[in-house]
Structures are given as C-alpha cells and as structure tokens.
C-alpha cells in the first residue's frame, strides 16, 4: 500500500490518539493563544462600553451546572465589564438551576473583585421565578407583579435600585446567558422584539447556529460557546489592560481546543489531498 492510500484510509484510532494528545499536551503545558473578538461579540462589548455609567442592565442566568463550563466564563467577563463601567446589574434566572449559577458569579466576581459594590445599590439578585417565556411576557409589562421580593426575601420596595424599575423597558440592555429553552431566543421574541429593548447574550456552541437568524436585526450580538467567551475576554483585556495579568478562563481553555481544531483541519487537508491524488491515479490507470 502506498503512503497516499495509507493516509487516505488511516485507522480511526490514530485520529483518536492525535486528538487526545492535542488536548492533553496543551493542558499540561498551559498553552494558550490571544483571541481576537469577531464583530458579533465586539458589538456586545461596545454596547456595554458605550452606555453611560450607571445604566441598568438585566442579566438573566438561564443555565445549569452541566453547561456552566461554557457559559460561566462569559457571565464572568460580562459581569466584570459591567462592574468596571459602574452599571447597575439586575440578576435573575428563568431556570431553577440558574439561581445557584448566578450566586457563584456574584460571589466570585462582584463580591471578590469589587468589594466596594453595595447590594441593592449597584446590583440586585432577583432569583429564580417559574414561568419561562410567560414570565418574560409578564415582566415586560410589569416587573413588580412577579418580583415582590429579591432572592433572599427582602421586599422589593426596600431595595433602592428597584424604585425606578417598573418593567423591562426600563432596562438599557439585556444580556442573557442561556443553555436552551427558555433562553436567548425567548428573550429576543418576548422582550427584545415587542419591547424594543436591546438584547444580546451568550449560548452554548451547539445552540448558537440556531440563533444566528436573529442577528443583527433582533439580537445585538451573540457569544457562541467558549470561543465567544474567549473573544469577550479578549475584548475586555484590550479595553482594560489591567486584566492582561489576570487569569482568563475561556482563553486558557481555548488553548487545547484551538490545537485540537488545528489537528482536525490538517486532517481534512490531508484527506482531500490524498483523495485527489487517488482520483488522478484511478483516471490514469483507466
């Protein structure tokens, strides 16, 4: 068998081994690359950057622990950015598991990195409410009807930053992190479209292709999977150089992913070259 034929019909196990190595080696040696935000991610960064300080931003956390590896880095980066810009953050969840995920980000980012932020003035955690897209529909007209207390049971009227929030239209921007239904699609359909509120967000890479139809008319921007998160982190580092030294989780994990990706690309190229050579040979021998 010639080299070409061998390459054309390479044993799957060799591919498996190379993929495993492509993941393990960069993990062990901490290899990572600098990302460059694509326009669809950059628009989200620019939106948060261009809003006047102290704007109201709604951050719904619609994911659970299984998709947290993909979505938490984006939530972290966006929350960080909002803190830097002194925006008022309103955190909520349409998923029962989202509340705990939101708490993690509040503890790790807001409380840890920005201890000067005051609960009730700079950020509020409204917690989980059942109802899915029906809830979005309701709070588009009247938020306080559904949210009479925050996640900890404090009455909404006792929270300073809630006094001038009547419904979703009072928010300057909605940035959602979602792993499925209800999620970004529903935020676009039931809040963004009818309420004319800028909506953007992040999703898992698998559901991102199904959301592209909404960009850019109905959805301001989209972070798809870890790649989207890494791009946002890159935008943040670019805008706030003090983050250059800080560990950026998505960028770090993107290292092994990028290498595995490259391996696959190389495989596809080899596969096609051998395919063409074989085809030519077959023609000659005819």
């Amino acid at each position: 068998m010639s080299v070409v034929e061998k390459l054309g019909n390479v044993d799957r196990r060799i591919i498996f081994l190379l993929i495993a190595l492509a993941v393990i080696i960069p993990l062990v040696f901490n290899i990572s690359f600098m990302e460059h935000p694509s326009p669809i991610v950059q628009t989200i960064f620019d939106k948060i950057e261009s809003l006047p300080n102290g704007s109201k931003i709604l951050l719904p956390f619609d994911y659970g622990p299984s998709t947290a590896p993909e979505l938490e880095p984006m939530a972290t980066a966006v929350t960080r950015h909002c803190c830097k810009k002194n925006h008022k953050m309103y955190i909520m969840a349409l998923w029962p598991t989202g509340q705990a995920q939101a708490l993690r980000v509040i503890e790790d980012v807001i409380e840890e990195e920005f201890p000067e932020k005051v609960y009730g003035t700079d950020y509020v955690h409204l917690g989980y409410k059942a109802g899915g897209y029906g809830l979005i529909n309701t709070i588009l007209a009247d938020l306080k009807k559904m949210y009479t207390t925050d996640a900890e049971g404090t009455h909404i009227d006792e929270i300073g930053m809630m006094s001038d929030v009547q419904n979703l239209r009072d928010f300057a921007f909605i940035c959602n992190f979602s792993a499925g239904f209800p999620g970004l699609k529903e935020w676009v359909q039931f809040a963004g479209d009818p309420g004319d509120i800028p909506v953007a967000g992040g999703t898992t890479a698998v559901s991102a292709p199904l959301l592209y139809p909404y960009y850019p008319r109905q959805m301001l921007g989209l972070m798809g999977g870890l790649k989207g998160a890494a791009e946002y982190e890159a935008a943040l580092v670019h805008g706030y150089p003090e983050y250059e030294k800080v560990y950026q989780r998505a960028i770090a994990i993107m290292g092994p992913q990028a290498i595995a990706h490259l391996v696959i690309i190389i495989f596809i190229i080899i596969g096609n070259i051998t395919f063409f050579i074989e085809k030519k040979r077959a023609k000659k021998s005819d």
Binding site: I19, T204, A205, P256, H261
Partner: peptide
Amino acid sequence: GASFGYTVMARISLLIGRMSFLG
C-alpha cells in the same frame, strides 16, 4: 457544513473536562 464546523470546538471542550478530571 457550517453547523458541523461550528460545533466541533464545543465537543472538544467536553473532552477537556474529562481530561481535567483525570488530571
């Protein structure tokens, strides 16, 4: 083609998770 290409990376992150666990 586009959806396949787009998803490749997400699938690899699952493996990274398992490898980190073994680590």
